[in-house]
Write a protein that binds this DNA or RNA. Structure first.
Lengths: 257, 257
DNA sequence: CGATGATTTGAAGGAGTTCAAACTTAGTGG
DNA sequence: CCACTAAGTTTGAACTCCTTCAAATCATCG
């Protein structure tokens, strides 16, 4: 019975041994191992995953990893650097849907339409691993742990976006910006970086665009938080001096509606 | 080689024949077949899917399908009726994250944490099919088409939420509400109902909550649209008299930021 | 060092909220 | 079947948060 079912698999997967230039390109030796797609895989399974990972791509600051409308063939795991994803609306204005950092996956929103739904632009010189989705799908049949983890990642993406929806729908400017800072803080912490001092890789304008606020509002909020002793700012450098207070602001009194 | 790989499957799936009370409970005979999980499956595969679908559950108007924090064991396919999903924030206020209708899947956001991330409440007397997720995962190994379709559905959910994010972050009240109406319209059309005349199953307050506006704003917008001849309204009944104009409003001039 | 892009700050204006009150609908019990 | 009630909706007026517009200041990089 099982055999019959398995025979209906779409194509026969022929494992490909890692190529020479892949040696430095391995999930097994990657420092993001615990954050990225191979999370929770056995050593053997990680090697199977290694076998399908495509080339590493470097994207210079401001460069496009993919364009909206591009046919979807790969997911991308960020190895190094930061990205923003944005759409361009009917009237030509840019609308930022998210900021992504090392260990995060780009392209999940393209699976259903088989076309990328947004632009992915590097905020600094960055590097990604190309993950051919068709080959990943083939691996799912062999590595249930990988499939389960992949579902977790997609589900997490949904949850993340729900939180952003709540932020945009219900929070005042001050609350939004506090939530934004707290969010960055916790993501850096997960990656082993300081949760209180980091660089804002994006422009004020991009923060505002993402949070549904103007650049002036962001600037004013930075000044206010600075005056209140919540943060220290120097251009792109920011230090969160009172993380608990910022967290309280982020949770704090939403609009009543 | 393949056999070895397949042997690593987490558990041996023993197909269960449809139980007696399942006869009326089949994907194969369900009118939502083309919209829901079985989309694109062969007849044989649809029967396999039938084998794992749990009981049908009736939820009366106002009843909870699940609560936020509940352990996640099932996805739910809406068979009949409408739901809203909402969270309750720290200060006890309700924040609506979406409205769902027949053929749509509930619970995708719970996969990553294995706990439901929101409440699901029936907006009218409704009915859902329980889909035990663990058994669905077992089926994925046997029915690649099902897996692929499932990924599409998750990806679609991400895209949908991105659109809502854009709506909340960038649109004025008028534009949001127009987009909301146009969205309902196209979903009813897909389901074979009128795209221009339908019932609003949710309260004005719930619409406002979802769109990040007050109930008063929604009421004023309804009045304005009515005066402009774009719609006809009678309590919950609404008729879109000028769908193209509403579509234009929905696309129309976003805030500049 | 000069030019361009990015950020900050100020002042005025407006979209949408808040508060208040009237009105309508649906449901209940007499 | 009607009166009564509670819930939901509409409308008006005042206010507020954030935007818009404008101009000055600052950073970056050839």
């Amino acid at each position: 019975m099982q055999a019959v079912q398995f025979a209906t698999a779409p194509s026969v997967r022929i494992p490909v041994p890692p190529r020479a230039f892949d040696v430095q390109n391995r999930c097994s030796t990657c420092s993001l191992h615990q954050l990225c797609l191979p999370t929770g895989l056995s050593e053997a399974d990680t090697h199977l995953l290694d076998g399908i990972i495509g080339r590493r791509r470097r994207i210079p600051r401001g460069g496009n990893l993919y364009h909206m409308g591009d046919p979807f063939t790969n997911l991308y795991a960020i190895r190094l650097g930061h990205f923003k994803t944005h759409q361009v609306s009917s009237d030509g204005t840019e609308r930022i849907t998210g900021f992504q950092m090392a260990g995060e996956l780009l392209g999940l929103d393209a699976i259903s339409s088989e076309r990328h739904q947004c632009y992915a632009v590097a905020l600094e010189d960055s590097e990604v691993c190309e993950i051919p989705f068709a080959r990943l799908e083939e691996l799912f049949a062999d590595i249930p742990t990988l499939l389960r983890h992949f579902h977790r990642m997609m589900s997490q993406e949904i949850t993340r976006e729900q939180n952003t929806m709540l932020l945009l729908g219900n929070m005042r400017a001050e609350q939004r910006f506090a939530a934004f800072l707290v969010n960055l803080s916790s993501r850096y912490k997960t990656r082993g970086y300081s949760s209180t001092a980091f660089q804002l890789r994006m422009l004020r304008e991009e923060i505002g665009n993402y949070l549904g606020l103007t650049i002036e509002s962001i600037s004013r909020l930075l000044s206010r938080f600075k005056k209140q002793g919540l943060i220290r700012v120097n251009n792109r450098e920011i230090e969160l001096l009172d993380l608990p207070a910022l967290r309280a602001l982020a949770l704090g009194t939403p609009v009543t509606h």
